[in-house]
Design a protein around this nucleic acid. Sequence first.
DNA 1: TCTTAATTGGAGTAGTATATCCAATTATAA
DNA 2: TTATAATTGGATATACTACTCCAATTAAGA
Lengths: 144, 144
Amino acid sequence: MLSKSCQYAIRTLLFICSRSEDHPRVRLQEISEALDSPPAFTSKILQHLVSAKLIQSKKGANGGFEMGEAGCSHITLGQIVEIIEGHSLTAGCILGLSECDEKNPCPVHHIYFPIKVNLNSKLMNITLSEILNDPNLLNINLKT
Amino acid sequence: MLSKSCQYAIRTLLFICSRSEDHPRVRLQEISEALDSPPAFTSKILQHLVSAKLIQSKKGANGGFEMGEAGCSHITLGQIVEIIEGHSLTAGCILGLSECDEKNPCPVHHIYFPIKVNLNSKLMNITLSEILNDPNLLNINLKT
DNA sequence: TCTTAATTGGAGTAGTATATCCAATTATAA
DNA sequence: TTATAATTGGATATACTACTCCAATTAAGA
């Protein structure tokens, strides 16, 4: 449903956020170990997140990645998906038709539309902080 | 969200069903024209649907494709997705973790799970007939 | 200033999804 | 039985996603 790049991106950001209080700057190696993700590939995704200003990077010794200006409480899952995938998870017609709306719906439109709206609003509204502060969440599980 | 193969498969089946009363057997060419889909690629998908027994094929002059035993009223969207993709649309953890359930959830599990259950039940329960007989559906739009 | 630690960027590889082409096969009908 | 109409199946092409490797760059600290 989500690309692996996008999954890595979300997990990366959740990891950096979860560390942002006691240990704001984390290295690539720490991240890829925490996620069980391939370091070189994770690095590309980090570059992308830096260019989108979700995080900041610092080169050289004691370098690494930390949250950007926005911070954990202003980044939503929906935003991350849009940055990595280039569009929202629910963008477009489920059957791939270029014209599909209330006026000219595909045959599945009436079934899928409410689900789409619901999913999209959930993703666009939930922030990284909210996810991490959920009291139901006993430990933060980001490993494969 | 769905692969193009899967979109073609659903649109193909909707088309065959919509023709199954007055004109049960349709040729590849008719199908790909109705969908605006590449004929050779559509053919591969038809082969797949034949091997899964959702439709039957007949070679030679006057040949073509028609619904299989199950018929339009017993095939659900969920089934088609599983046949083409190899698993349900909502299978697996949204963050890609191999272990993710109520006992050991990923950080997004509590948000995503209800959506997943809802989407899956909708897809597994709606049949091709139900989609085509929806009174809200004025004309059957399957073209790109 | 030199060494070391880190990100950055470019090029390249592997596998999968999408798509095409053509010969082989099968069935109809003249 | 021969020509024609159709699906089938195999080989191939192309684009995209996932991933790797390595040299270049930058910063810290001895």
